[in-house]
Design a protein around this nucleic acid. Structure first.
Lengths: 159, 159
DNA sequence: CTTAACGTTTACGTACACGTGACGGTCGTG
DNA sequence: CACGACCGTCACGTGTACGTAAACGTTAAG
């Protein structure tokens, strides 16, 4: 293997913490901090004890970042939302170590339940936001009506 | 006026801070704190200097609470969103003191612009949440497919 | 084999958000 | 006038989300 571009060999499925951090626009500290909180754990460790992240870890981190930045969830809420990273780690390991189809099915089924719960929580939040939009729209209507009145030379105190 | 149930006469349009707090499930301290941050200011003050809130203040506080609890905005973001309570106070005063229709129109028009901006911000947040839902849905689809495979006796590592 | 860059844990520091409490004083209603 | 609600002010506390640094091990390149 003479071909390796500094870190991570070309086809290497594992990234080190700084590579992940750069890719996502996070600091290594944040990533380790998220791990402390139990939001994720790296797919593996090197012979030394460098954290090694795979594609699914990166996806997960990206999702976490989205929940934090776009959705405005606190890390504690995100933890709830992703519920039980321990279970995920166990699943990942168990899944690849078991040949038992029934067990594999059970694991995949659990994962499915989790993502469905996530979707529910997100949709719930969307619904609440939409009801706020509705409130704003109502206010907007009142203002437009008032404006029309004024344009028609109407009176009236502020609503 | 012999009829007044302790504070606030029955039809009185003004509420004192504790009454507002109770109605909304906030503490008086929080309400004052929001005022410190410039999120709102009471419609008026009593002869002493008790804060007096009218219906629109209560609405506004309810909206603030919604933004904080349901939408997960920080108080700073809410401040941005509501942008310029000072302007609102000025409008309220100016509106009732001017007879000039053109001026009234301008004030109402400003208010309209503000609520439209609010609606945009909320919808923007909704859009981002929806894209996250889409991501979760994608993951859900993959899992369902995998589950179907397993039920059909298929192989494969975890996705 | 050396060395620079990168990583590890542990620990303490910090900046801001969001309040809470405590004070001494004022208000207003019975 | 008593008593509780409210006032402004200032300080303090709690939690979150990291930053920073020390002391030391790892990895890849020359």
């Amino acid at each position: 293997m003479t071909l390796k571009s500094s870190p991570a060999a070309v086809g290497a499925p594992f990234l080190r913490i700084q590579e992940v951090a750069s890719e996502l626009g996070l600091t290594t500290r944040s990533i380790r901090y998220y791990e402390e909180l139990g939001l994720l754990s790296p797919a593996g460790r090197s012979d030394g004890s460098y954290r090694l992240y795979d594609a699914s870890d990166v996806d997960r981190l990206r999702f976490i970042k989205g929940l934090r930045d776009d959705a405005g969830f606190s890390l504690a809420e995100i933890n709830q939302l992703l519920e039980d990273e321990a279970a995920r780690a166990k699943s990942r390991e168990a899944y690849s170590h078991t040949g038992d189809p029934a067990e594999r099915r059970a694991i995949a089924s659990d994962a499915l339940n989790r993502v469905e719960r996530q979707a529910r929580i997100l949709r719930d939040k969307i619904a609440r936001l939409e009801s706020m939009v509705a409130a704003v729209e109502a206010r907007r209507s009142r203002l437009k009506a008032r404006l029309a009145d004024l344009d028609a030379g109407g009176p009236g105190e502020i609503a």
